[in-house]
Design a protein around this nucleic acid. Structure first.
Length: 423
RNA sequence: GUGGGUGUAGCUCAGUUGGUUAGAGCGCCGGACUGUGGCUCCGGAGGCCGCGGGUUCAAGUCCCGUUACCCACCCCA
């Protein structure tokens, strides 16, 4: 058989898995401090959850989903992102009934059928938070502060991060602007690439994203939504910026920041890093989605959140020279001089473990010398040597691997001696 | 979906104009006064040279195909 993991997936071996757990631990600690609670939603949903939530015309829905029919004839899709599921779940369980607010966070794998490249996998992990029921601009600033604070908490220098901010307007001002851009594109179609030309009909705002230099030049002359926001959106956007300023979080307004998911309204943001990511330089992003709950047939409920990618965050940390803490695999190694003392060695290791100490021993009948090498490799600060000589006196030898100092202690109090030695 | 690059020991890579038993470093295992680590020295194990065809007296080296990975476009976290 083929022992390779499927294209776009990767095994997370201990070093990476440890980093994964670290990312989740830091998230848990920080998000909890901001009042967010954990939520786990299914890894797959009815396809409709994504097609209606994210938008039929988006790339994600139109060509990147893992969709299949289950044995009951239902159309099922592996989740390509987290927000749609969380909002669906909040609606199902009435988490925002009677004006209640829900603050949730999640972490787990997402699935998109794309060509893999640096920082882009078919199964990739995201951590995200969602606030449902909060319309005030302080919520926008809080969500952005959590994202920013998370990367800082991991040790990413703030100079290496760039926060992009924009407003996409709402139902009151976006449609008119959208039509205006479509008209603008049609008027300049001769100077734009075919793709952008087509965008006039499908998703005109995406033309701002085009990397084609000619298109960029043309679009630079297009009217900005920022200048055509309705009064409510304009004041909301201004308030968000004021709150960010107060928090001392630096941001860059970028009118070309247009999220590719249909559900976004008003505030959108993204954090990019320059080093380590290749062309996939966004490590986290999100925005407000005030109409999403309604799209599912629920009551009008404002909402917003962000998602960040594990793989990319790790690449960014690596590029910034930030290490992932790796605790020693063993604090104490119990060495066996010969096989007459096996029972005592195994018993002592077990008692150390029960006392809360990371203890390791040999299971391969290795020589004493190689047991020491192993102890060294595992980072053990002490080695307890158990041999016939010691046992004859009812004792064991405790060796400090740093100072090479050896002391004899009674077998009966060996655990206490180790605890005392470890301090 | 489109384009470019690369596939040789566990890892990172060498392999000369095709020529005999395919190499190095790191890692791993063992040894250097028969119960002791990190340094040094010595030794050892480990390779369908991605896979399948072809050219040739001879292919890791050339040609074709295929597959996997990487990178970019695109899109997004």
């Amino acid at each position: 058989m083929n022992a390779q993991a499927p294209k776009g997936t990767a095994d997370m071996l201990p070093d990476v898995a440890r980093a994964w757990e670290h990312l989740q631990r830091v998230a848990q600690e920080l998000f909890t401090r901001y009042g967010y609670e954990p939520v786990y939603t299914p890894l797959f949903e009815h396809t409709e959850v994504f097609s209606r939530g994210i938008g039929e015309a988006t790339d994600i829905v139109s060509k990147e989903m893992y969709t299949f029919e289950d044995k009951g004839g239902r159309s099922i899709t592996l989740r390509p992102e987290g927000t749609a599921s969380v909002v669906r779940s909040a609606l199902e369980h009435n988490l925002t009934a009677n004006g209640a607010q829900a603050k949730l966070y999640y972490a787990g794998p997402m699935f998109r059928y794309e060509r893999p490249q640096k920082g882009r996998m078919r199964q990739f992990w995201q951590i995200g938070i969602e606030v449902l029921g909060a319309a005030e601009p302080t919520a926008d600033a809080e969500v952005i502060a959590v994202l920013w604070g998370y990367f800082e908490a991991l040790g990413l220098p703030r100079e290496s991060m760039r926060l992009l901010l924009n407003s996409m307007g709402d139902d009151a001002c976006r449609p008119a602007y959208r039509d205006g851009i479509a008209a603008f594109i049609r008027a300049h179609s001769a100077d734009l690439c075919d793709e952008c030309d087509r965008r006039a009909a499908t998703n005109p705002l995406r033309a701002f994203d085009c990397k084609n230099p000619a298109c960029r030049e043309v679009m630079a002359g297009a009217p900005l939504l920022r200048d055509e926001l309705c009064e409510a959106c304009a004041s909301h956007y201004a308030a968000v910026k004021t709150h960010l300023d107060a928090l001392g979080i630096p941001y860059v307004e970028d009118s070309s920041l247009v999220r590719g998911l249909d559900y976004y309204t008003r505030t959108v943001f993204e954090i990019q890093v320059e080093a380590g990511l290749g062309s996939q330089n966004a490590i986290g992003g999100g925005g407000r989605y005030d109409r999403l709950m309604e799209a599912y047939g629920g009551p009008a409920t404002p909402g917003l959140g962000f998602a960040l990618g594990f793989e990319r965050t790790l690449l960014a940390l690596e590029a910034a020279g930030v290490g992932i803490p790796a605790p020693p695999r063993a604090e104490v190694y119990v060495a066996r001089v010969d096989d007459t003392v096996t029972a005592e060695v195994f018993g002592l290791a077990q008692r150390l473990r029960e006392a809360g100490i990371a203890a390791e021993l040999d299971h391969q009948a290795r020589s004493l010398k190689s047991q020491f090498k192993q102890a060294d490799r595992l980072g053990a600060r002490f080695v307890v040597i158990v041999g016939p000589d010691e046992l004859a006196a009812g004792e064991v030898t405790l060796r400090d691997m740093g100072t090479k100092e050896e002391t004899r202690v009674a077998l009966g109090i060996a655990v206490d001696a180790v605890i005392a030695a470890l301090g």
